[in-house]
Design a protein around this nucleic acid. Structure first.
Length: 650
RNA sequence: GCCGCCCUAGCUCAGUCGGUAGAGCAUCUCACUCGUAAUGAGAAGGUCAAGAGUUCGAUUCUCUUGGGCGGCUCCA
């Protein structure tokens, strides 16, 4: 006896089913021996199916408007879907509107998604006009990298086509090569969807290939969820560090200086230096030594480190200096190429080998706020999160092989403790392992090191995600991912082993038995770059920094001019106590001053008028608009100092 | 780097179907002296991103360059 999913599940929220673990359409038949589980539309699988079905509808709509459009792929993604098309002209916003309209019609029509197994020859005949589909059919059976969404088309055990048919007449409107499964019916896409934008994307993700036009959309089980999603997007846009940086006068990117090169204004500068001060204090407490190295170097250093061999495109081009020529143009004096440094490690290696090193000195931890310059492609730059000039809180730790594990473990602990100080406390770890195509060193060494990192990660008790093939060529790495206030994750700290540079730089220490040994090198960036970390904190706090980071910690607002001197004196005392306090002595009314301070997201407003003057007190107004009147000056100062010292958010 | 879109006052934005521009906020001046999110009046502020082309005339159309945004690729 066998049944279809429709017979098994009458709940309208069930859109597909798992049969023996495999996702299937509800139209599929199952036998009694099968294990069958329902997939509801609001589950992760259900949403993927919904989104993938919406992608099909997008494609049908596009081809109904422009039959010449050739189909690429159309997989579900986080929060939505996309579909790629080869079209003569890129889509315009008006095109998207027209496509949405056509989609709406298709959805209302209630077309059924009907699965059909085909042979390769049949598929080739049916999709003779779809060159990209033909390519995918050719891919079938070859290396099944599910990477760029191909697997949603041809990733199944057999080749299948999904026909979109009229629910009553069975007339076929459209079809697509697809693994499935799909919703039973387009009507189930409902009205929780929206096309969002179009952009170009390389066919199958390679910049050697042609660029197709991609349409992005989002789709949700209900209209309310769509609305909630759009609100989240809006919230994220409000926190955009580029917008806040401008509004709060923190930093800018003057066109005269160049792309990806930021200047920090006074208010951004003070936040930046607070970040650095705290960092420095943590470093010194944890056995680091602070070093300092120049921004430029002769090219030879990067020949030793092999950066000029591997990463030259990522470096600013050479400054060719000191060359001399005679009248005939012959070189009479050989010049030198100088480069801006793209990383600090080679220079730290030179500090390590500046003199003989003993095992007694290890672990040797060299830390620096090292400013580096990288020639990132223009299209990849984004605010402070991707720049061409940045300061890394960089450290290189030289250890014996036996010390690797304990050092990585203590680094991890140190990293988490420090990040918590900045108000981040939701973390998980990612372990990046060897890229079989691109690595140096022995497999044994890699395996052992990777295992060590895995153990340390496991012992931390944090969630661990693996990132196969994500390591740099010189060693595996563990990274700390942090979730911010609105749930986005950022890769922050990295702890990375390096088997390569100690070799290249012939680093050695004298072991207890008098032999010369090669140290293991650990690269450790805690904040990544100060710029990027700054951006993350700015977005995390939406500009309302905790008191210790706030550029202006206290604004004094006199009720009228007559109270300026009284309040000015209190502000003066705060300044003496090391608080960033300002008196607003402008000619505005106090209401306006309150508004201004609120817009600047100042944590404490101190207000004083007649009443306070007579009582020797002051009134607090907090960021949330609440207030507390009649606080004695001494208590007020103490309270503010404490809020700063304990790094609390207010 | 690639595809598309964008660049008007310090900021946010109007506007010009080709006849060289306007608001609000910010700034400055004056008046108001005020107890919890915008007091009023006035002034000043622009080579309409830069350069070239088409045109009697370009901020507007075309091209180039710079900068930005959304993606793709990249992210040592």
């Amino acid at each position: 006896m066998s049944n279809t999913g429709f017979e098994l599940f009458t709940d309208r929220n069930v859109v597909a089913m798992r049969v023996n673990g495999e996702l299937n359409d509800l139209a599929a038949t199952v036998s009694e021996s099968d294990t069958v589980e329902p997939v509801t539309i609001d589950s992760a699988d259900g949403l993927s199916i919904l989104r993938h079905s919406a992608a099909h509808v997008t494609a049908q709509a596009v081809q109904s408007i422009n039959p010449e459009a050739k189909l690429g792929i159309g997989p579900p993604i986080t929060d939505g879907f996309y579909y790629d098309f080869d079209v003569a002209e890129p889509f315009t916003p008006d095109d998207l509107k027209a496509i949405e309209k056509a989609m709406d019609r298709i959805i209302r029509q209630g077309q059924r998604f009907q699965r059909r197994v085909v042979t390769e020859a049949e598929a080739r005949a049916e999709f003779a006009d779809e060159p990209y589909k033909l390519e995918l059919i050719g891919l079938k059976g070859s290396a099944s990298d599910g990477q760029d969404g191909e697997s949603v088309e041809v990733g199944g055990a057999e080749l299948t086509v999904y026909d979109n048919v009229d629910g009553k007449t069975g007339e076929i409107f459209w079809k697509d090569l697809c693994r499935g499964p799909h919703l039973p019916n387009t009507r189930m896409i409902g009205n929780g969807w929206k096309l969002q934008r179009n952009a170009a994307a390389y066919w199958r993700g390679s910049e050697k290939n042609k660029q197709l036009q991609r349409i992005y959309g989002t789709a949700w089980a209900t209209k309310d969820e769509l609305r909630a999603y759009l609100e989240r997007q809006e919230e994220a846009a409000k926190r955009d560090h580029r917008k806040l940086g401008n509004e709060l006068d923190l930093f800018s990117f003057p066109e005269e200086i160049g792309s990806g090169l930021a200047v920090f204004h006074p208010r951004g500068g003070i936040i930046r230096s607070e970040i650095e001060n705290y960092m420095r204090q943590q470093l010194l407490k944890n056995g680091y030594e602070l070093v300092n190295t120049p921004h430029i170097t002769k090219g030879h250093l990067f020949e030793i480190s092999q950066h000029l061999q591997w990463y030259k495109e990522g470096m600013f081009p050479a400054m060719h200096l000191d060359e001399e020529r005679d009248a005939a143009g012959n070189v009479t004096r050989q010049g030198q190429d100088y480069y801006l440094k793209p990383m600090n490690c080679p220079m730290h290696n030179l500090i390590f080998r500046a003199r003989g090193r003993s095992y007694r000195e290890l672990p040797l931890r060299l830390a620096e706020f090292g400013t580096v310059y990288r020639y990132e492609k223009s299209g990849t730059l984004a605010g402070l999160t991707r720049v061409r000039g940045m300061t890394q809180d960089d450290a290189h730790i030289y250890v014996t092989a036996e010390q690797v594990k304990s050092e990585v473990a203590s680094q991890l602990e140190f990293v988490l403790e420090t990040l918590r100080g900045y108000g981040l406390n939701d973390f998980y770890l990612e372990l990046s392992t060897k890229d079989p195509e691109k690595y140096v060193g022995d497999d044994d060494v890699w395996d052992e090191a990777t295992e060590t990192l895995r153990q340390v990660a496991a012992e931390s008790g944090l969630e661990l995600v693996s990132d196969p093939g994500g390591a740099a060529f010189y060693g595996p790495k563990i990274s700390v991912q942090a979730r911010d206030a609105i749930g986005r994750t950022w890769q922050l700290s990295t702890v990375q082993l390096d088997f390569n540079q100690p070799e290249l730089f012939e680093l050695e220490y004298t072991a207890s038995d008098g032999t010369r040994q090669r140290p293991v090198m650990i690269h450790r960036a805690l904040l990544g770059s100060i710029e990027r970390f700054f951006a993350i904190l700015l977005e995390h706090y939406a500009g309302a920094f905790p008191v210790w980071l706030a550029p202006v910690q206290v604004v004094g607002i006199p009720v009228a001019e007559a109270h300026e001197q009284y309040l000015g004196d209190i502000i003066g005392q705060l300044k003496k106590a090391g608080v960033r306090a300002e008196l607003d002595a402008s000619s505005e009314r106090m209401q306006k001053k309150i508004r201004n301070a609120a817009k600047d997201k100042v944590p404490f407003q101190l207000i004083a008028g007649e009443e306070d003057m007579t009582n020797g007190s002051v009134s607090f107004r907090y960021r949330d608009g609440t207030q507390e009147n009649g606080i004695s000056v001494a208590v007020a100062i103490e309270r503010i100092r404490e809020a700063i010292d304990t790094k609390i958010q207010v």
